[in-house]
Simulated scan of single mutants.
Amino acid sequence: MTIFRTAFQALRTALFYVVFIGQTVVIALVVGTIALFAGRTRLSWAMAVFWCHSNLAYLRIFTGLKTIVSGAENIPPGGCIIAAKHQSNWDVFAIFPHTGRPAYIAKKELMRIPFFGWAARSLDCIAIDRQKGAQAIPALIEESRSAIGRGCRLVIFPEGTRRAALAAPAYRQGIVRMYEALGVPVVPVALNSGLFWGRNSPIIWPGTAEARFLPAIEPGLPAEIFSQRLAQAIEGETEALTLQAIEKGLGRPLGPHLRQSLEVRRNSAT
């Protein structure tokens, strides 16, 4: 890949961020102000939906990153937990339109941002204080139970943070505790967005990011069996989506970590 192509993609990325951040600030100001006086309204919800759809459009227009989401028919009616792999901010925009009335589990620091935090809380987001570790779980479960009672579907990233493509998984116990306490199905979500919009990458690369809702895991399983099924479903399909995208050809260079991960998998296969 030439230096010119990389520089050009960096410019496209910068243009996206200008539009994305500018729009996010304006919408947060409006929805946050509405939340102070009226809580959740049809207008604030419509603006949240617009924010997600428009961000996906801006990614396609400015950076060449397209979106495919499949498997939404696997989301059961009623309350459930949607447990997604997390590799980039794209994940939030892509999953949101398919979740009905979502209640995202978000780190507490985001909720402390003026206007943005007020807007997020009015749209059912649930804050978790990650610094408290396991001590934060009881409050998380109570708020989650309340959100399900309001007709929400919980959306959680069970690893707690963004992971690089093909990186070793690091699932936390919060999702297991929620599964045991709430007694609702869990829908795993696999994706490969980290190939195009990596956590530490200054450039968003062109291509087609995919997310796939997988068959729901029924409630009532022993914790160990549930944990194994969840990780196997997410990691297996995430790896498949990632390798398929690489085989089709990427419009980005392969970094040393990604090359090493691919080499490990090739050696294992042989």
Rank of each mutant, 00 (worst) to 15 (best):
A190H: 03
Y58N: 13
A165P: 00
I204T: 03
A190P: 02
R252E: 03
N200D: 08
I175S: 02
R40F: 08
E263Y: 06
P219D: 07
A134F: 00
I225H: 06
Y171F: 13
L230W: 10
G207C: 05
E247F: 05
V25N: 14
P256V: 12
A94I: 13
F226E: 12
L191E: 04
V189P: 01
G151D: 06
N200H: 05
V69G: 10
I234C: 07
P114N: 04
I246F: 07
P185W: 01
R145N: 00
R162I: 07
W90K: 15
L243M: 08
Y104Q: 13
N200M: 02
L36C: 11
N200W: 01
Q135V: 07
A223Q: 12
R265T: 04
G255N: 12
K132C: 03
R40Q: 13
I175D: 01
A94C: 12
D91V: 12
A209I: 06
I128E: 01
P77A: 14
E237F: 03
A269W: 04
R163K: 07
T99E: 05
E235L: 11
E263I: 07
V19K: 13
M178E: 00
I141F: 03
T2Y: 06
A216P: 01
R112H: 11
I234D: 03
I246L: 10
C152F: 00
V31T: 15
G198W: 02
V49F: 02
F37E: 12
T2K: 12
R145C: 00
G149N: 03
A119S: 06
A245N: 08
F213T: 09
A120E: 05
L123H: 10
G174P: 02
A233H: 03
A103D: 08
F8Y: 13
H257P: 00
A209Y: 03
A134L: 06
P138S: 07
E73Q: 11
P76H: 13
I81D: 07
A38I: 13
A211F: 03
G255S: 05
A139L: 11
I81M: 12
N55V: 12
S88H: 11
S146L: 06
A120V: 11
E235H: 11
P97L: 09
F50Y: 15
T13C: 15
L140A: 07
R212K: 03
G255P: 05
V31P: 05
I95P: 10
G32D: 09
G149P: 02
R153L: 02
A190K: 04
V19P: 06
A119I: 05
A240M: 06
I68Q: 11
T41R: 13
V49N: 08
A127H: 07
T99S: 10
I225E: 13
I148N: 09
I21Q: 08
V92G: 10
L214N: 05
E224C: 06
P256S: 13
L241W: 00
Q9A: 12
L221W: 05
G133H: 02
G22S: 12
R172S: 05
T242R: 11
E218F: 08
A106E: 03
L56Q: 14
E237M: 08
G174W: 00
G207I: 03
L241N: 03
A269F: 02
V30G: 10
Y104R: 14
L243V: 09
S54H: 14
W45S: 15
R266G: 13
P215R: 12
E218T: 15
V25S: 15
G174D: 02
Q228D: 05
E73C: 03
A38N: 14
W205S: 09
